[in-house]
C-alpha cells in the first residue's frame, strides 16, 4: 500500500512541477546576487544570505531560509491537503476503500508518502542550493564563519547543514499534519490546503504581536528559523529542542485526530 501511494505521488507530474517551481526563487535570488554583488547587510533579509557572497557553501541554507516562510509550506500543504480530499474529489477514495485498502492503512500510506514528499523537497532545495552556490559564488574550502564569529571547518559546516535539513523537514511535518488532518475533514483538496495555510499565516501574525506573547511559544511557526542556531558556536540547542518537541506534539495530536475522524467517517464522496 505504501509503495502504491509513493508510486502514485512520484508518478504524478504535478509533484515534480511543484518541486521545480519551489526551486525557482532561490535560483533567481542567487542570479541577482551574483550579478549585482548587493548582499543584504548582516542581520537583514533571510538568514545566511549576507554571507553567501563570500562563501557559496552556505547557499543550501540560504535557499532553505528563502523558501521556508511561504513557498515550502505552500508546497507541503498542497500535497498533504490533496492526500485524502483529492482522492475523495476524484471519486477514487470509495474504490480504494471498497478494494479494501483499509482506512488506517490508507491513512498511514498517505502519511508516509507525504513525509517522503517533504523530505525529497527539502533535499532537492538543499541540493539545488548547493549547486547554485558552487556555480555563482566563491567557495571557501577552508570553512566558513559561524554566526557568532568563530570559524567552522568544512566538515562542521557539512554536518550542521545536514542537521538543518533534518530540522526543516521536521518543521514541515507539522504543516503536513495540519493539511492531512483537514484533508480528512473535507472532500475539497483546496479547502484542506487553504485551511493549513490559514493556520500558518495566523501563527506568523500572532508571533509578531506583543499581546500574543503568552501563547507565542506554542505557535506552530514559532521555532521554524531555529535551524540558524546550528551555526552558532557552540550550537544553541534551546530553541532547536523546543521546536522539535513542539512539532512532535502537533504532529502526534493532529495525526491522532485525522485517524479518529477518518476511521469512523461516512464516505459519501
Amino acid at each position: 500500500m505504501i509503495a502504491v501511494e509513493l508510486s502514485k505521488m512520484f508518478r504524478r507530474p504535478r509533484t515534480w512541477v511543484t518541486i521545480g517551481l519551489l526551486n525557482g526563487l532561490p535560483v533567481l535570488v542567487a542570479v541577482l546576487l551574483a550579478l549585482t554583488d548587493l548582499a543584504p547587510r548582516p542581520g537583514e533579509g533571510p538568514p545566511f544570505l549576507s554571507a553567501v557572497l563570500t562563501n557559496g557553501t552556505l547557499y543550501p541554507l540560504a535557499a532553505l531560509a528563502i523558501v521556508l516562510p511561504l513557498f515550502l509550506p505552500i508546497a507541503v500543504a498542497l500535497i498533504a491537503g490533496d492526500a485524502v480530499a483529492g482522492e475523495a474529489q476524484a471519486g477514487t477514495l470509495r474504490y480504494l476503500l471498497a478494494r479494501p485498502a483499509g482506512r488506517t492503512r490508507l491513512l498511514v500510506a498517505k502519511l508516509v508518502s507525504v513525509f517522503a514528499f517533504v523530505l525529497v523537497t527539502v533535499l532537492v532545495v538543499a541540493a539545488v542550493g548547493y549547486l547554485v552556490g558552487q556555480v555563482f559564488f566563491e567557495v571557501q574550502p577552508l570553512g566558513g564563519t559561524a554566526l557568532s564569529g568563530t570559524s567552522l571547518t568544512p566538515a562542521q559546516i557539512a554536518g550542521r547543514t545536514v542537521l538543518s535539513i533534518g530540522y526543516v523537514t521536521v518543521s514541515m511535518l507539522g504543516v503536513a499534519a495540519f493539511a492531512l488532518f483537514f484533508s480528512t475533514l473535507t472532500d475539497s483538496p483546496l479547502a484542506a490546503m487553504i485551511g493549513a495555510l490559514a493556520v500558518l499565516i495566523a501563527s506568523s501574525l500572532l508571533f509578531t504581536l506583543d499581546a500574543a506573547s503568552s501563547i507565542a511559544p506554542y505557535l506552530p511557526t514559532r521555532y521554524w528559523l531555529a535551524f540558524v542556531d546550528f551555526f552558532r558556536d557552540p550550537i544553541l540547542w534551546r530553541d532547536i529542542v523546543r521546536g522539535l518537541a513542539l512539532q512532535a506534539v502537533y504532529v502526534a495530536v493532529l495525526l491522532g485526530a485525522a485517524w479518529a475522524n477518518f476511521a469512523t467517517k461516512d464516505i459519501t464522496s
Binding site: M1, A3, V4, S7, K8, R11, R12, P13, A90, G91, T92, R94, Y95, L96, A98, R99, P100, A101, G102
Partner: peptide, 28 residues
C-alpha cells in the same frame, strides 16, 4: 466482491492499465 459505486473513477493522468494495476496492488 467487485464493486462499481455510482460513477466510475480513475486517475486521469495514468493509463487504464496503470489504474487497474494500482487498484489491484492497493488491497489484499
Amino acid at each position: 466482491v467487485g464493486a462499481l459505486i455510482e460513477s466510475p473513477a480513475a486517475y486521469g493522468h495514468l493509463s487504464g492499465r496503470a489504474n487497474l494495476t494500482l487498484l489491484d496492488a492497493a488491497g489484499p
